[in-house]
Design a protein around this nucleic acid. Structure first.
Lengths: 141, 141
DNA sequence: GTAATTGCAAAAATTTTGCAGCATT
DNA sequence: AATGCTGCAAAATTTTTGCAATTAC
């Protein structure tokens, strides 16, 4: 049974605001954090709607879900091929536009017989602020 | 208030078997999958014990938690600096030992002021088997 | 003997789903 | 008017926690 998806996507106020708010931040919010943001503009919105829309927007390729563990999933309105670096102390996730993705992907391709569609390079380290602050316990995110 | 951790780690049967079973596979099981494996050898073990031990073993650096999204977290007994590649169709996660981590990390370091402790490079693509099989729907993991 | 660890059950946290009414096209 | 979408509430999933009993050292 093939799953047909001829659904026409409509632009609702909720969907629009969610996208706008995600685009407005440079952080990588969780569904829950998005809910809080959006609720300021649409007080009666439900968390379920936020979850559903983030999923829809991912499906459209308009936003992306990050491949970063933690208890909650995180989303990013920037779908360009950039990297993330996460601080193991405070848990913050920063963007990283430096390296050269294309070369890396090409190097991988034949080794494995995979068709490489993309990749994510996640660095783990300690951010400048935490380096100054010194010996705190690592954040458990 | 600094959190002291002077706890002495003991080697229990449960802990040993969990480590053994994780080392025995080349897949990247979820806590739940580990529970099923271990239950065959220790039928009365509880899922909570599996979660607690995977966490402890991660803390010891003996195993690692993967930075791959999905509903459940995944674990790997191989803590060497290797990569993972995930098929967006079947969801399988393979190991990848090819590239040269050190060079990549060094290139990143000064850009950001981060102290880079490690990184994970996650490729996304379609595995050989799925390429043959052709146009299935992508797996939602 | 002491304190870490376990199993169990219950709670917490996160995400998904059913459904009747509403809104977009 | 048709059907995609919403809010709500309830369910499902995944992970964590409290506690008394057990076990490793």
């Amino acid at each position: 049974m093939v799953k047909m998806k001829h659904k026409k996507i409509r632009m609702t106020r909720q969907r629009g605001v969610i996208l706008e708010e995600l685009r407005a931040v440079k952080t990588h919010p969780t569904a829950d954090e998005m809910y809080e943001k959006v609720k300021k503009r649409i007080p009666r919105i439900s968390l379920a709607t936020v979850y559903r829309n983030l999923e829809v927007l991912c499906g459209l390729g308009v936003i992306q879900k990050l491949d970063i563990t933690g208890r909650q999933k995180r989303f990013d309105a920037d779908t360009s091929n950039h990297y993330h670096i996460k601080c193991i102390k405070c848990g913050k996730v920063d963007d990283l536009y430096s390296a050269r993705p294309d070369a890396i992907e090409k190097a991988v391709e034949d080794h494995r017989g995979y068709e490489v569609l993309g990749h994510r390079l996640e660095f783990e380290g300690i951010c400048p602020k935490c380096r100054e602050a010194g010996g705190k316990e690592p954040d458990t995110q």
